[in-house]
């Protein structure tokens, strides 16, 4: 898996290098640049810091310092189905932490981590703006309201089943071609 990751990172870095040209060489562009990298690649690979630092003429640790200060940036690739569990105030008083624990237990990873097969990752977020249906979890782009610990299992199963179905239909398509 590390080979895959490395090959992926190489591709990301060359893409980053080419897109940096769109930015002004100014310190104030630092956060927008980091946002651009994360938006296109879903995380900030460690090697990107050096490239950005060279481009802006600042130190690498400066770039790293800024990136780690803000909650938005992540430093490892998320899963194909990123799970965000809301721990905003409304979700907290309705037991959001229990939901988070259930996802962690079910997937055997902690918040901030990605499963080995890179299918799922778990993140905690603060208020996704639908407190009225708290507690809330977001899987991919879909918001699931009124979450309960017992729904965790079925949601994960659903994602896995959908994937299997897709793979099957893909295999079918290929065999008919």
């Amino acid at each position: 898996m590390d080979d895959v990751l490395q090959a992926e990172e190489e591709a990301i870095l060359s893409n980053v290098r080419s897109r940096l040209a769109l930015f002004e060489k100014d310190r104030s562009r630092l956060i927008p640049i980091l946002q651009m990298i994360q938006e296109t690649h879903a995380y900030l690979p460690a090697a990107a810091f050096g490239i950005v630092a060279d481009f802006l003429g600042i130190s690498e640790c400066d770039v790293y310092g800024v990136a780690t200060f803000y909650n938005q940036f992540r430093f490892n690739p998320p899963g194909r189905n990123p799970i965000k569990v809301c721990l905003g105030t409304a979700c907290h008083v309705r037991g959001g932490d229990i939901i988070l624990e259930n996802f962690e237990r079910r997937l055997e990873i902690s918040e901030g981590e990605t499963t080995r097969d890179r299918e799922f990752s778990i993140e905690r977020v603060a208020c996704v703006g639908c407190c009225a249906i708290a507690p809330v979890a977001v899987i991919g782009e879909t918001v699931h309201g009124s979450m309960a610990p017992s729904k965790v299992e079925s949601l994960i199963l659903r994602v896995q089943l959908e994937k299997e179905r897709e793979e099957r239909s893909q295999a079918k398509n290929e065999s008919t071609q």
């Binding site: 721990l87 905003g88 105030t89 409304a90 603060a126 208020c127 703006g129 407190c131």
Partner: peptide, 10 residues
């Protein structure tokens, strides 16, 4: 930044 407010966004 308040983790339980969303009026500005709305």
């Amino acid at each position: 930044g308040d983790p339980g407010a969303y009026m500005d966004r709305t």
